[in-house]
Design a protein around this nucleic acid. Sequence first.
RNA 1: GCGGACGUGGCGAAAUCGGUAGACGCACGAGACUUAAAAUCUUGCGGGGAAACCUGUGCGGGUUCGAGUCCCGCCGUCCGCACCA
Length: 764
Amino acid sequence: KAQLKSMGLSLDWAREIATCDPSYYRHQQKMFVDFFKAGLVYRRKSKVNWDPVDMTVLANEQVVDGRGWRSGALVEQRELEQWNFRITDYSEDLLTALDRLDRWPEKVRLMQRNWIGKSEGLRVRFEIAGEAPNGDRALEIFTTRPDTLFGASFMAIAPDHPLAKALGARDADLAAFQERCRQMGTSVAVLEMAEKEGYDTGLRVHHPFVAGLTLPVYVANFILMDYGTGAIFGCPAHDQRDFEFARKYALPIIPVVLPSGADAASFAIGDAPYDGEGTIFQSDFLNGLTIEAAKNAVASRLEGMSLQGTPQGTRQVNFRLRDWLISRQRYWGCPIPMIHCEACGVVPVPAADLPVVLPRDATFDRPGNPLDHHPTWKHTACPQCGGAARRETDTMDTFVDSSWYFARFTDPWADTPTTRQAVDSWLPVDQYIGGIEHAILHLLYSRFFTRAMKATGHAGLDEPFAGLFTQGMVVHETYKTPQGEWISPAEVEILEIDGRRQARRLSDGAAVEIGSIEKMSKSKKNVVDPDEIIGGWGADTARWFMLSDSPPDRDVIWTEAGVEGAHRFVQRVWRLLGEALPWISGPVRPPSNATCEIALGLRKAAHKALIAVEDDLEKLGFNRAVARIYELTNALQRALAEGDPATDPALAAAFHEAFDILIRIIAPMMPHLAEECWSAMGRQGMLATADWPVADHMLIVDETITLPVQINGKKRGELTIAREASEADVRSAVLGLDIVVSALEGREPRKVIVVAQRIVNVVA
RNA sequence: GCGGACGUGGCGAAAUCGGUAGACGCACGAGACUUAAAAUCUUGCGGGGAAACCUGUGCGGGUUCGAGUCCCGCCGUCCGCACCA
């Protein structure tokens, strides 16, 4: 309810929207079933933070200090059977394919790389000395640094590791320690502050290479059960965390990596571990090897050693990426089309029965999932045996919907989720534009989903988005009253007093503090209503300002002054057009070449602008395109002041052509103004459907060029010379310049560098 | 802590391959028009200097005929990840 309220929606509206058109759900459910049959979907018990008041699952960020932030209630840990997509099947592929996405920002690719988090290492089994309470005879750990095995001084396992649980069952102190860790585990804030803590279980394991050496096994609060095997060996000399732990519990710190140049006899670890490059020492058969070679040597040796009938070491690639949990206990979402039958297990809803639609008469008068406590909705018959069965009441994460809409859009009325002909011919998306906030989740899920669609025959490609561009946000100043209350820009007037910008509240003139520039948000009230912008300035002005102010990948600061400037430009174009109207009506006549200087200059300016704008738009350089358009407008205004088209038909034709180009290059950014101008010029149809003008590249080639002339790398003058002049001609002309002659004082230059069409540098 | 990006006028920013730093806009100053204001137009605008000229792209070095751009080392800002073994 709170969520709906914040969206300004009533319950009736929510029901209406959630149930209005089930066709997309039908196709999504069809694909879900196909994924299920292909083994890409599975159910897994997972621990969740359960809010006992709202009867809902809380996201991690909703939990602070063991309490849910919305209800303030204590959070329970529960285990729920939930649906997951097997995105981890594609970890390696999702990672390596990033290298081929060359039209994606490096930043996004890097974020995905880190998120997938590949690490190559070794699983090592340590023989347990004596007896473990659960009967385990070996402790398996994962490490990326097997080269430091001879520096091992302890083992650490996660508090919820099976071995730790078994040990805790007969050791009350350990159980209490584990309980403390569990309480802490849910709180991000505590985690950051938490000191490394451990509990010595008394259990010991044998070092695989050093006969007679045993290592103590600790339960430690910093070991995660869901990474690797939930257990590590600690090498304090070469790992920050292990180092801190060893200091606290007075464990040996044995260096085994020697930095180059250090003396093996005297090298010791001081206040910090050493994690750099070096040569292995104090390590038996590894001595003298590089880190990489030692990793290999250890892996090979352990692979060949047998412990209790299995190899003692196994090379393993580990990923940070987890499977994608899509179950949501909410009304709002696409129902998961599955049926639970006592006899047959989990059975997909048959295609003919799709879509499974949400009930319209769901109620929200008590906590929990409305689908679950709806009186009839979940009761159904098993499609296989016909017996009484129960519908899945979880709905899908809405990221599922956004993971394939672009594929559906290629044939939106098709009776199947996609049609291969359409999806193969349209995809991949050439240019995707979105915010950086989707860098990981949405863009990674879509990449997975496209692969899953390929695996189930719904598409034929791996990568959905060939080009990606991440645009910035619109941001605005914030305003705060002395009472600390945020107020909106509409309630504030900005004044310049004593050369300082100051703000006052419109209603009573009270002083207002101008705060930092931030992303527009309702909480800070620094929002500008789009309807008011369009009502007050027009859509063209708003768009022109946003495009002109900053490059599109950066944030644009919304300012009243900036918008006014943009609006002035709209008026100026319209006014200039009005002044020139007598000469620019009807179809463009081909401008004569026998023209006056003003006309020729104008033609060059127009074609130069056209060429530049084409290039800028192609590269999404809208702010640069705007600057080029300003330049052309300035040139037009100057020409209109200087020349008289009434007495010069060539000039009139040049104006006609220049205005024609101007309004066409404005059109993509200010369509309304452009159409109005188009119509005022007496042109037929709509500009939007007219062809883009063709630039005359020959026209902008000048016969003479002006080269900057440098002496010893500093600009001292200019040289105007024929474009076709040879290097020798340029050289002798430069040496004849007064500034060059006086600088040389009769000596020969040491060197003259002529860069064609660019610059000349005389080294004296 | 790890990883990355970026530092250019009062402000937003340009500078395509190492080749005239500050295009274009905003703000501001001066002037014209006006009884006045708004709008519009003209003009100035990195810093120093009367000028010639000097100086200037976070700081310190380097490469080069030439560096905002390339290399090394600092400083600062922002972003992402974060007990990942």
